[in-house]
Amino acid sequence: MIKTDSRTGRLALAVAHCAGMVDLVALPVWVGTLIAHYAFDPQQAGALVTLFLVGAVLASAVFAPRFHRLRGRPAAALGFGVAAAAFFAASTTTAFNQLAVLHAVAGFSAGTGLSFTHGTIGRSANPHRLFAIVGMALGAFAVLFLGGTPQLVAALGGPVLFIVFGGVMALAAITSTLAFPVPDEESQASQSFRASGQRLPGVIWYGIAAISCMAVAQAMVFSFVERVGVDRGFGTERVTAVLIAIGLVNLFPAAIAALLQRRVDARTVVLAGPAVQGVLALTIAVSSGFEAYALATAVFVVPMLFTHTFAFGLLAKLDVTGRATAATPAMLMIGSAIGPVLGGTLVKAFGYGGLGAAALLIDIVAIVLFARLMPTTRSAEATP
Rank of each mutant, 00 (worst) to 15 (best):
G273V: 13
G273P: 13
P274F: 12
P274I: 10
P274S: 14
P274T: 07
A275D: 00
A275L: 15
V276F: 13
Q277F: 11
Q277S: 07
G278L: 13
G278N: 14
V279H: 05
V279F: 08
L280A: 15
L282E: 05
L282C: 12
T283H: 08
T283R: 07
I284W: 09
A285T: 04
A285F: 04
S287T: 12
S287A: 15
S287G: 11
S288D: 12
G289M: 03
G289P: 02
G289D: 11
E291A: 15
E291T: 13
A292S: 11
A292H: 14
Y293E: 02
L295A: 15
A296H: 08
A298C: 08
A298N: 13
A298F: 07
V299E: 11
V299K: 08
V299L: 10
F300S: 06
F300L: 14
V301M: 05
V301C: 06
V302G: 03
L305D: 03
T307K: 07
T307C: 01
T307W: 10
H308M: 08
H308V: 07
H308A: 02
T309C: 13
F310V: 01
F310Y: 02
A311C: 03
F312E: 01
G313Q: 09
G313F: 09
G313T: 01
L314A: 10
L314Q: 10
L314E: 07
L315S: 09
K317E: 00
D319T: 01
V320E: 03
T321L: 04
T321W: 11
A324K: 03
A324Y: 00
T325V: 06
T325Y: 01
A326S: 02
A330K: 09
A330G: 10
M331C: 12
M333V: 07
M333Q: 01
M333P: 01
